[in-house]
Amino acid sequence: MTVLGAYRGLVRDDLGWLNTAGRPDPAETFHRANLPRVGLDDVAAAATGVMCSVALYLHDGDLISNLTFVSAGTAGGTLTNQIAALYSRTGALLAQSADKTSEAWAADTAKTFALATPQRITKSGIYYAALAVAASTVPTLAGTVGAKPFLAGEVNLSQTSGSGIGATAPATIATPAFKRAVPLVIAT
């Protein structure tokens, strides 16, 4: 028996899919993604003014300047606020984007949010990429469904928090609630 139980391989190899999701040629463009780009469907992000945050594994040394979310079958309607933010594993705000206010968001369209201050990651691990949209119709996002955590130390793959969020991201992810729908996010 090894320290890893019955697993005899390299743990990094077993978890490699977390770091290569959607990366056909990682030498071309640096990015990190929380999901592969296959098997995705139309998922609801969150209600208007509610933040949806998804777990995203980042590496020590990564420089994160942008967060990209991809709308699915439903376009945004009468948009008033659209922000993205990057949070630490503890839920502390690291950086947020400018508010895209009423900028259109069509169906099946990637929207990139530039962080006001690019973040150099100093410790590999789970971070949270968040999106909050205030609109009469919040766009659905490309994503998948995930299970609720059940093992000690697991985190929500997707969660909602807050209400009435407009142009400013909350300082912390307060009282997150598990969300089954897990939107795709790409960090560059």
Rank of each mutant, 00 (worst) to 15 (best):
L94V: 08
R37Q: 05
V185N: 05
A135K: 09
V54C: 05
S161N: 15
I64Q: 01
S88E: 07
G9E: 01
A45F: 11
A169C: 10
T122F: 08
L157W: 09
L35H: 06
T2S: 14
T101R: 15
Y127A: 06
V70C: 04
S163W: 06
D41K: 00
K111G: 01
S97F: 00
L10K: 10
T109M: 05
K111F: 10
F30W: 14
T160C: 02
R180M: 06
N66C: 14
A167K: 13
A169P: 08
A107G: 05
G143E: 01
D99R: 09
F113W: 15
A169V: 03
V54N: 03
F69A: 12
G166C: 10
I83V: 15
L131K: 02
H31E: 09
G153H: 04
S161G: 14
L184Y: 12
V38A: 10
K123A: 15
K123I: 14
K179W: 04
A44G: 12
I126R: 02
R8V: 11
G73M: 05
R120W: 01
G9A: 07
A171Y: 09
G162S: 03
T137E: 05
Y87G: 07
G77K: 00
A92P: 03
G125D: 04
Y128I: 01
K123C: 07
Q82C: 10
G76N: 10
A132D: 02
L40T: 05
L18M: 15
T175D: 06
A47K: 11
A152P: 12
K148M: 12
T112V: 04
F30E: 12
G16F: 10
G143A: 10
K179D: 00
Q159T: 13
A106S: 11
D62T: 11
S161Y: 06
L35F: 02
A104Y: 03
K123H: 10
A116W: 02
G39Y: 06
P183C: 08
P183W: 05
F69P: 07
A106I: 00
V38D: 10
A132G: 04
A6P: 00
A104E: 01
T109P: 03
Y87E: 04
L94D: 08
L4S: 10
L56Y: 07
Q119D: 02
Q82L: 13
A46V: 00
D13E: 15
L58H: 07
